[in-house]
């Protein structure tokens, strides 16, 4: 009896330790990023760093405004492509899909989530870029190409979270709507969809998080010029690609400025996650 109790205690401790390890990892990353990034930012001047328009490491100019703009443009583009497609798909899966088809579609979407991003990037480079070259001329890379590719990449996140929240809506909503004389379509779009609103929004925000943090695929199709984009087909560099492009050989202040770029990215992600958890809490209360 006693032995069992002590064993139980032991395992409780073990699990507790596991929980702490992941929390400690987050804390360590935070400390590392801020301790390394902030002094460099201060050395270069916060304002000059965040709002500087020139990124020329060899000339000692570290302004990341073009990259911030790039990240926002590409993410916005990904939302424009990915969100409508993802939501329609989720509604179809939750409300209209025949069971047999569902058995094919659902694993396909899950598979989409498991494809490594470098494979997406290669697909973009070999398939989307030549098509864009044919349509718009030019090099076929840039905001539009990156947005389309990212739109694909955020689909699984949006679809699975939205579908789950559509399915979580109590059946009474749907039945009540039918009882009032609404058709199946009306009930789905006007009753179930709004009821799942906060959950769907959370899915979209998670998708945004994925889009803004994506690196490898974007690096291969965005063109990566550190300039302000002036058109949809203009080359663009995002915060993430700025880091991965130059981290390999960077030394000294250049390296620190790349870590500082990571800090900015980190703050972006923190804001997005904060939005997500706030929405989740609100959604939880509503139900």
């Amino acid at each position: 009896m006693l032995k069992l109790k002590s064993k139980e205690k032991l395992f409780k401790m073990l699990f507790c330790l596991c929980a702490f390890v992941s929390a400690a990892a987050v804390a360590l990353i935070c400390i590392f990023m801020f301790a390394n990034g902030f002094p460099a930012m201060a050395e270069n001047g916060f304002f000059k760093f965040l709002f500087g328009e020139e990124w020329r490491p060899t000339a000692g100019q570290f302004g990341i405004l073009p990259m911030i703009t790039g990240s926002i443009c590409v993410t916005a583009g990904a939302i424009i492509f990915g969100v409508p497609l993802g939501l329609m798909c989720a509604i179809f899966l939750a409300g209209f899909c025949p069971k047999k088809l569902y058995k094919v579609l659902k694993p396909a979407i899950d598979l989409l989530a498991g494809i490594p991003s470098v494979v997406y990037g290669y697909f973009g480079l070999m398939a989307i870029v030549p098509i864009m070259q044919d349509i718009f001329g030019g090099n076929g890379k840039g905001i539009l190409t990156a947005s389309i590719l990212l739109g694909f990449m955020i689909l699984p996140t949006i679809i699975s979270v939205s579908e789950a929240s559509l399915r979580a809506v109590p059946n009474a909503y749907y039945e009540g709507s039918l009882a009032l004389g609404a058709t199946h379509e009306q009930s789905m779009f006007k009753t179930v969809f709004p009821a799942a609103g906060s959950g769907i929004f959370a899915g979209v925000i998670l998708g945004i998080g994925r889009a803004i943090g994506e690196t490898m695929a974007v690096a291969m199709v965005a063109g990566n010029s550190a300039i302000f984009p002036d058109s949809l087909t203009s080359n663009v560099r995002t915060l993430t690609t700025n880091i991965i492009l130059e981290m390999g050989y960077a030394t000294g202040l250049h390296r620190q400025m790349l870590i500082a770029t990571g800090v900015v990215l980190f703050i972006f992600i923190l804001i997005i996650n904060l939005c997500f958890s706030m929405l989740k809490r609100k959604g939880g209360k509503a139900q």
Binding site: R56, A219, N235
Partner: peptide, 14 residues
């Protein structure tokens, strides 16, 4: 100043 002056619109591959 002797610093790299590759045109900023050049595509960058890593």
């Amino acid at each position: 100043d002797g610093n790299d002056a590759t045109v900023a619109t050049a595509e960058v591959t890593n």
